[in-house]
Amino acid sequence: MAEIPLFEEGVMDQDARLIGSKCPDCNQYAFPAQSYCPRCSHEMERTALSQEGELYTYTIIRQGPPWWKDKVPYTVGRVKLPEGVIVKTQIKNDELSPLQIGTKMQVEPHVMINEQGEKVKIYRFCPVG
């Protein structure tokens, strides 16, 4: 069976490992990967990022944009990785419960229907354990 296509090229691999970039000169990381360092403008190198981090903040979206109307409510947030980058992400929270900021989170692959009605693979974070 054909693999489900990624929602976007260059952001993650099939196992939802996030692809970022690292500056060989000043060690700054970026997500998503970019060509030049946001700190010193040196050329950056692609690198896989940590798969765990801490929940920095979140919200439960109850009203989405028109092209996302049928998907609300859903939980989104920001996860801070050990590399220092903050990743914007959907969060697994089927119960729509209040979350605890600072909770340890890990990335996982998830399948979603995109705007065109096709199945695509995305990354999302869920609380560890």
Binding site: W68, K71, V76
Partner: peptide, 9 residues
């Protein structure tokens, strides 16, 4: 990519 994930709201 953020828009495709419903994050750009």
């Amino acid at each position: 990519y953020e828009d495709k994930l419903g994050l750009q709201v």
